[in-house]
Design a protein around this nucleic acid. Structure first.
Lengths: 162, 162
DNA sequence: CCGTATCCACAACGATACTG
DNA sequence: CAGTATCGTTGTGGATACGG
C-alpha cells in the first residue's frame, strides 16, 4: 500500500505557465467547483429530475440546492424543462444535457476511487453494464486501443494535425 | 449541442438514503475537496516534487500550497520523502503514493471534459501514450470489455460473489 | 529554499422562516 | 411542491511578513 509508483514525465517545459491560464482541468473545476455541485450531478445521473428529489437525496439545504440547480442550468449542464400533467399546473424538470452527461466519467472515476481507497472496496452499490451485467470501470486508453497506466503517459503540446 | 441524452435508471430504491452516508463519491470528495487540491495533484502528476515547484506552477499562494501538501500527505495521497544530495542539507520531496496515483482517471476525465466543453477542443496540451504517441482518453468499460455509455448503465446493489 | 503566522475578503453551507 | 430571503458559521484563498 501506498508505495511510490507513478512518474509521469511531461515533455512540456514547466516554465511555460500555460497551467494557470488555459488548463482544461482548471477550467472544468471553475464550472463544477463545489462538493454540492457534484452531489446534485450524482442525483441527476441517478435519475432525479424534480427540485424536491434533489433536496432530499443530496441531503443539501434548500437554498444550496436551488443555487446549484440554477448555476448548473446557466452553465448548460442541466436543462430546465417545463411540463404539465393533465389537470395539474405547469412544473419543471431538470435534466442532464449532453454537456452534463459527459461528466459521467468524472463522477464514475471519483466513485471508483472512493470505493477502493476510502471504503476499502466496501461500497454497497456499483455501476453495471445493462446489457451484460458486468461491473463498469473507468479506464485510460489510447486512440490505438491500448490500455494506459500512469507510467505510460506523457504530457505534450497538442498536435493540430491529427 | 446540449440536447437531452442520458437517462441512467438505477435499480436502487431512491428512498434508501445510502447516498449521504456511504456514497463513495461523497467520500472521495471529502478527501479531495478543493480546487487547490486538484491543482496540486495536477502538478504532482506533471512531475513536480518540491515545495517551490508546487507554489510556482499551481499559482497558489504559499500558505494554501503548504496546507494542501500537508493535508494530502496526511491522507496518504502524497508522501514526503527526505533526501540529501552530497554536501547539501536534507530536503524533502513530495511524491504520489499509489493511492494518489490512482486519482489519475479523475484528473484525466476532468481535463478531457474541460477541453471539450469549456475550451471547445482548443487546449494546448494533451495526454499521449508514450509507446505509440496516440492521444489518451478516458473510457467507461465493463469487465467483459464492452465500451459503455450513459444509456447502457445501471446502478445496482453490489453483488458480493463476483 | 522551505515553509509558518497573521490578517482579511469572500465563498460555501446549514438553519430557519417565508412566498407563489 | 418549488422555490427565495436572511442570518450566522466555517472553509477557501490571497497578501504580506517573518523564521529555520
Amino acid at each position: 500500500m501506498s508505495s511510490t509508483t507513478i512518474q509521469m514525465t511531461g515533455v512540456l517545459d514547466p516554465r511555460e505557465d500555460w497551467t494557470a491560464d488555459h488548463c482544461p482541468l482548471a477550467d472544468a473545476l471553475d464550472v463544477v467547483r463545489t462538493r454540492s455541485a457534484f452531489l446534485v450531478l450524482r442525483e441527476a445521473f441517478y435519475g432525479a429530475t424534480r427540485y424536491d428529489e434533489f433536496v432530499t437525496r443530496t441531503g443539501l439545504s434548500e437554498p444550496v440546492t436551488a443555487a446549484r440547480l440554477r448555476e448548473l442550468t446557466a452553465d448548460d449542464i442541466l436543462a430546465r424543462e417545463p411540463y404539465r400533467e393533465p389537470g395539474q399546473r405547469t412544473r419543471h424538470l431538470y435534466r442532464l444535457t449532453e454537456k452534463g452527461a459527459e461528466l459521467l466519467p468524472v463522477l464514475a472515476a471519483l466513485m471508483q476511487w472512493g470505493d477502493r481507497w476510502v471504503q476499502d472496496g466496501g461500497a454497497r452499490v456499483e455501476l453495471r453494464h445493462r446489457d451484460c451485467g458486468a461491473p463498469v470501470e473507468v479506464q485510460l486508453r489510447c486512440a490505438d486501443g491500448h490500455a494506459v497506466d500512469g507510467g505510460g503517459l506523457e504530457l505534450a503540446r497538442r498536435r493540430r494535425d491529427r
